[in-house]
């Protein structure tokens, strides 16, 4: 095998093939979404991928509505949706609902979970909730430069094994790790990397039984929904917005959020 051949086959080599499309998002092959805690650099990653200048700032709660952009990578067209940062998907403030509805009902091909490497444990709470909803995700371990500054070391391979999704270390502000992130997004989107997302282990048998019983009933009513276990859990917890969506039958056709706001 010649050297040049090696290069052509190496996924990193192709990463020069990124074409930033800005707002041009016609005829996309894949939809990906950026989710994560507030102030982890989602918008910075978004800007790096799309070439847009979504305003970034060092404070939580800056993105309150969805922002969208596009890029071409290895001849495939991607649409990227930047979601507001949230601490969980369980409560019901407007920004959390925007994020939740999009991941749940927009059914993106890949969800990029951007986490702060210096606060991994807290960020994992949201990451695990996202993995309950979707089974195609990539973890972007952002702010690695700060983690290094703080003498924090993270075993990315072990983390990837635990979560069952690709884990890519990055420093988005320095544009580091973006090529690797793109490669991982492509692999998951194209189905070359099959995620085995972590499922919450420490649940009682009784709860799990109740969930699966409800989920099978939901499956008859809403055959197109991919995350019935999660919907079932929300029903058991008494989540009003989900209860209403089931009652009215809108759950199957719910709009992934109309809160795109143009300033």
């Amino acid at each position: 095998m010649s050297n040049s051949n090696n290069c052509d086959n190496c996924p990193v080599h192709n990463k020069e093939n990124l074409i930033k499309l800005g707002l041009n998002m016609e005829q996309v092959d894949y939809v990906i979404t950026m989710a994560g805690n507030p102030n982890t650099g989602k918008s910075t990653v978004f800007n790096n991928l799309t070439g847009l200048h979504q305003h970034t700032g060092n404070w939580p709660g800056k993105t309150v509505s969805r922002a969208e952009g596009g890029f071409i990578y290895n001849e495939k067209r991607y649409k990227v949706v930047d979601l507001p940062g949230t601490y969980s998907l369980l409560s019901t403030s407007t920004d959390e609902e925007v994020a939740r509805n999009f991941i749940l009902f927009g059914q993106p091909d890949v969800t990029v979970i951007v986490v702060d490497a210096t606060r991994l444990e807290r960020n994992l709470n949201l990451a695990l909730q996202i993995l309950e909803i979707t089974d195609r995700a990539v973890l972007c371990l952002n702010l690695m430069d700060e983690a290094k500054r703080n003498n924090i070391e993270i075993d990315e391979r072990a983390l990837s094994k635990e979560l069952g999704i690709p884990v890519i270390p990055a420093s988005a502000r320095r544009k580091e790790g973006m090529k690797e992130l793109l490669a991982a997004i492509e692999e998951v989107a194209a189905g070359k990397y099959v995620c085995k997302p972590h499922k919450i282990k420490s649940r009682s048998i009784k709860l799990n039984n109740a969930i699966s019983s409800l989920a099978s009933k939901l499956a008859e009513q809403f055959p197109n929904l991919p995350n019935l276990n999660w919907v079932a859990l929300r029903l058991l917890e008494g989540d009003n917005s989900i209860i209403e969506a089931v009652q009215s039958g809108e759950l199957g056709s719910i709009n992934a959020g109309d809160s795109t706001v143009q300033l």
Binding site: L120, E121, R122, L124, N125, I154, D155, A158
Partner: peptide
Amino acid sequence: DASRIARKTV
């Protein structure tokens, strides 16, 4: 679960 994973990896 989050804390268990973090203990293993950080």
